[in-house]
Design a protein around this nucleic acid. Structure first.
Lengths: 342, 342
DNA sequence: AAGACAATTGTAAGCGGTTACATTTTGTAG
DNA sequence: CTACAAAATGTAACCGCTTACAATTGTCTT
């Protein structure tokens, strides 16, 4: 039913090889026949069948995007950047939600391989993600987005992340500069490297300022509101009595703010809160959240660009691109008033 | 390099036809050989090439999802439902952001057709979307998600939407019951049918209560914060002086709240605001937004289920499924205190 | 005008499966 | 033990396109 190169060939009185040549701008075709073939294609409203060409060329112009959850604004932003780049370069993306599960990730990967996708954009990697390692060993083109693995150096992976150590550092430093000395730190899952890095930044700032870290006031969780809420309640009821909280993402920070309000305190007057990510939520909560901005869309875009270049064979060794982070100061932070802690 | 049915056939001492039969559970294969072939597949770690089979079977187990913007939480939720269902039924989804542009939509559609996807989930349709009409005429399986077109009846389309008339009605009715008589209404683009429907619900509630609608207090926009902000400023500075605002999505409502605060009024004490969608934003803004809940994830899931059934030939005529909407009451609304309007 | 070489164009064999149809095996009634 | 239908298996064409290689045509030299 649909028109094929055979139809074009017949109508233009050439062989299918010639049709294929004008289709791919490959091989030598005289200008005269090229035009004739093109005209026939127009007339017959021909569109090439990507599946058929994929069978021999092994390229589907399709990429797989593995993220934990598209309903999470952070990943939605990344995904948007990825899709924008894909579209700009003539690729499409298949979106997969792994829900932080290695098994789901593995299932998707095997499915997508069967579909001959050209490469993977992986944003769900744990620091020692076996799925990723396996892909790399099998020499499958991929790029790590937002999350690095442990020994990416030496391997031909491109990694696009943002400067998490700096992010943790500037957030904490800002609180310290405001006079806070007792600062809690709510992190995401330790299996995700960014959390270790943000913690590192936090610790560095604390150490530089000669401040002690209260062990009960540092905790790993799961990046969700509930965690921020519960952990903050726990911390505030415990021995540490922090005057400020640094949370490793906006959702956790929002949970922290709720907990504070729930206990009858005020943000920022009694306790300052800094978040991380600068999702659209940050400017909408009350008070608007001071937070570390990551260039999520840009990260997604750049990662995809790199992957496509790799697929096209334009890249050899792997590279790690670190995008800058910066603090966006809003209303959830203020000078420390709680002097009884000093 | 990769193992094919030929390898399996040779190793299991059968023909490729038999291998294909056990692969698809089609045709008659004796239990004995079936087991033998399966074992060889295991041993050789065989995975079928979807592309090759797609060439003859014309099925790629892949669906196209067309949405305006994945970074918009509303569509992200829909997309999550869609992807969940796809995954449950063994399909994958290709995500496309149309940015509300018919041209972009058309481009994606033609690209995806070349890739032989099995069907479309379209959530970006204007009420008279020509792209959709064309697809329907070409008999391409598709389902409309969240947005209906004008004359979907009679055509073999499945449509999954939520009850927008009711949504507009209950939101407005609630405000009326709180004593508000002068209620503004901020709508999205009139080219999207849901806005007409929500307006219809609004008008119905107003009429039933015998209230007059102030023409300057009703306006179409673009579903964004900025619109809510600007339009609200305009309305509040105009002749209408409403005591409550019904906005056709949460972002617009948030914009309206900003405008109100900007003018030095308070929400809800001076002006009540109701939103629409119940995105996660609604519970995070200050004050938490009273809004109409739509079952977005469920909508996405059901739509995808229907599409897959249609692809499998299990459905004939089109059906329109209308999911219920309900009001979620939070803190952005209260009894009307502004008596000088009466 | 013939020969040499380059530029075009065509032929046919895949790519990895599916499937109609032919062939062989098996099972069972007579 | 035949005879014959049913079950199992094999053969080969095809899906729509790419591409190595062969064949043809065109251009220039001498």
């Amino acid at each position: 039913m649909p028109v094929t190169i055979y139809d074009i060939a017949k109508e233009a009185r050439v062989s299918i090889a010639t049709v294929s040549r004008v289709l791919n701008n490959s091989g030598a075709v005289s200008e005269k026949t090229r035009l004739r073939v093109k005209k026939v294609m127009e007339q017959l409203n021909y569109t090439p069948n990507v599946i058929a060409s994929a069978l021999t060329k092994k390229s589907t112009l399709t990429l797989g995007l593995l993220i934990p959850d598209i309903a999470n604004p952070f990943f939605a932003e990344l995904a948007r950047g990825v899709e924008d780049a894909s579209s700009d370069f003539g690729f499409n993306i298949i979106m997969c939600n792994t829900d932080y599960s290695s098994d789901k990730e593995a299932t998707y990967i095997s499915l997508l391989k069967q579909k001959s996708i050209d490469g993977f954009i992986i944003s769900s990697a744990y620091y020692n993600d076996q799925n990723v390692i396996k892909l790399l060993k099998a020499n499958v083109p991929l790029v790590l987005l937002g999350r690095d693995i442990d020994d990416s150096e030496g391997l031909p992976v491109d990694v696009v992340v943002s400067n998490n150590v700096k992010g943790g550092y500037i957030a904490t430093k800002y609180l310290i500069d405001l006079g806070h000395k007792n600062i809690a730190c709510l992190l995401g899952p330790p299996r995700i490297k960014v959390n270790l890095e943000r913690e590192k930044g936090y610790l560095k700032a604390m150490e530089e300022a000669g401040l002690k870290v209260c062990p009960e006031a540092v905790g790993y969780g799961d990046f969700k509101i509930e965690f921020g809420l519960k952990k903050t309640l726990e911390i505030l009821k415990g021995p540490c009595k922090p005057t400020a909280i640094f949370a490793a993402n906006d959702l956790t920070a929002i949970g922290a703010m709720r907990a504070i309000k729930h206990l009858g305190w005020r943000v920022p007057d009694d306790i300052s809160v800094v978040g991380y990510d600068n999702t659209m939520l940050a400017e909408m909560v009350d008070p608007p959240l001071t937070t570390v901005n990551q260039q999520m869309r840009k990260m997604g875009y750049i990662a995809t660009e790199l992957l496509i270049k790799r697929i096209k064979g334009e890249r050899g060794v792997g590279e790690k691109i670190v995008l800058d982070t910066e603090l966006v100061i809003r209303k959830s932070t203020c000078r420390c008033k709680n002097v009884d802690i000093l």
